[in-house]
C-alpha cells in the first residue's frame, strides 16, 4: 500500500523489485512520513475531550493512523486538537500553547464550540471559535463529534499534509511565522491586535453616553 502512495507514475519498476523499490519525489516521501506520524497534543478542554479519549481507546483506535503518541507537552506535538469550549479565561493559555508548538504545526477545531462557540456562543465567558485567535486547518462539526467524525477530520488533515510542498512550506521560509500575541484579561478579553478598534469603540460609547445625559438634562 505504501509503495503505491509513493511511486510516481511513468517509471517502470522491474517485477522482482516491486514492493521494495519506489521512485518518488522528495516532497512525496517527506509528506508521507509526516502524515503517518502526526502526534496530537494531549490537551482536553471539555466534553469533546472524552470523545477524543474514546477515539484513542481500543474500539476506534487512532493508533491505526500513526496518531497514538499523545504528548502532554506542546514542544513535542504536531497537532493541537482543540477539543471543547474555548472560554475567555482559557484562551491566553491556548494561544501560549500554540506559540510553543514547533513548526510544522496544525490545529483541528473539534466540535461546535471550538469551531464557532456552539451552544454556549451567547455566553459572556465564551469565545466564538478558536479561529478568532489561531489559524485552524480542519473543522469537525458535531456536539460532540463521534469518534468516526474525529477520525474523518484527522484523515482530512492527512490529505492536507499530503499536498504540501517543501518549496512553499512556511517553516522553511526565511522569515519564521511570528508568534501570536497572547490575549489579555482586562474588564473583558482583550486581543492586543485590536487595541485601536477597542479604543475607538469605548470612545464612541462614552460620547454616546454624554450626549444622552445632555439630552436628558
Amino acid at each position: 500500500m505504501a509503495n503505491e502512495d509513493l511511486q510516481i507514475p511513468g517509471y517502470e519498476i522491474p517485477p522482482e523489485m516491486q514492493g521494495q523499490v519506489a521512485v518518488t519525489t522528495l516532497d512525496r516521501i517527506y509528506n508521507w512520513g509526516r502524515k503517518n506520524s502526526l502526534w496530537p497534543m494531549m490537551f482536553g478542554l471539555a466534553c469533546c475531550a472524552i470523545e477524543m479519549i474514546a477515539t484513542a481507546a481500543s474500539r476506534f483506535d487512532f493508533a491505526r493512523f500513526g496518531m497514538e503518541v499523545m504528548r502532554p507537552s506542546p514542544r513535542q506535538a504536531d497537532v493541537m486538537i482543540v477539543s471543547g469550549t474555548v472560554t475567555k479565561k482559557m484562551v491566553p493559555q491556548i494561544v501560549r500553547l500554540y506559540n510553543q508548538m514547533p513548526e510544522p504545526k496544525y490545529v483541528v477545531a473539534m466540535g461546535a464550540c471550538a469551531s464557532g462557540g456552539g451552544p454556549f456562543k451567547e455566553g459572556y465567558n465564551v469565545v466564538s471559535g478558536i479561529d478568532k485567535f489561531i489559524p485552524v486547518d480542519v473543522y469537525i462539526p458535531g456536539c460532540p463529534p463521534t469518534p468516526q467524525a474525529l477520525i474523518n477530520g484527522l484523515m482530512m488533515l492527512q490529505k492536507k499534509v499530503e499536498r504540501e510542498s517543501l518549496r512553499t512550506a512556511r517553516w522553511y521560509s526565511r522569515e519564521p511565522a511570528p508568534a501570536i500575541p497572547v490575549p489579555v484579561l482586562g474588564p473583558d478579553l482583550m486581543d492586543p491586535r485590536r487595541y485601536d478598534e477597542i479604543r475607538a469603540y469605548t470612545l464612541s460609547k462614552r460620547n454616546q453616553q454624554t450626549t444622552e445625559e445632555q439630552t436628558e438634562a
Binding site: 466564538s128 489579555v184 482583550m190 469603540y201 469605548t202
Partner: peptide
Amino acid sequence: PLHDNVDYPAGFDPDSW
C-alpha cells in the same frame, strides 16, 4: 459593533490596563 463577544466600559483604554 466590535464583531466579537466582548464589551468594555465607556472610555476604557486598553493600554492603560
